[in-house]
């Protein structure tokens, strides 16, 4: 194989880059420079077209709840909480939770916006109703 065909993988790997953005309070996802498709979670190859040429972008943060479940944790352990799948405006789907509303009020189709929550053990992307 000629050197010209050797893809250049930048260091560090995408998972580490994602976490570094998050540590800085930024939610970033990857967009493929070849097909313009977005992916989440971070990965070294585009799962739409196979290209290695992935760039980091800040998504709009806007999304829609695609699926929801409320986990019936016992009160003494902290009580119930929700887990959702959110479809981001850019296309990818991610797991998260919706904060600031009653768990049973989280519905499929609800418009939400991403926020990086830095109050916990590690920074996490969560969503608020909009």
């Amino acid at each position: 194989m000629s050197e010209a065909n050797e893809p250049v993988f930048t260091q560090p790997g995408p998972d580490k880059v994602y976490q570094e953005y998050l540590q800085k309070g930024q939610f970033c996802i990857q967009r493929c420079n070849a097909c313009q498709g977005h992916v989440y979670y971070p990965r070294a190859l585009c799962s739409h077209c196979g290209s290695y040429d992935m760039a980091w972008v800040e998504p709009s943060g806007r999304g829609v709840v695609y699926a929801v479940s409320v986990i019936n944790r016992r009160a003494e352990k902290g009580g119930p909480y929700n887990v959702v799948l959110v479809d981001l405006e850019e296309g990818p789907r991610m797991m998260s939770r919706v904060e600031g509303v009653d768990h049973n009020a989280v519905k499929i189709g609800m418009s939400v916006k991403a926020r990086v929550d830095t109050t916990g053990e590690k920074p996490m992307v969560v969503f608020d109703q909009v």
Binding site: Y41, A67, S69, I71, V83, M95, I108, M124
Partner: peptide, 24 residues
């Protein structure tokens, strides 16, 4: 990690999400 951070029960919550979608 991109799921476990949100504490879904594994595997029940994954199937619950599918059920929520099927019902919807």
């Amino acid at each position: 990690t991109y799921e476990a951070d949100y504490k879904p029960l594994f595997p029940a919550t994954s199937y619950a999400l599918a059920a929520s979608r099927h019902m919807h």
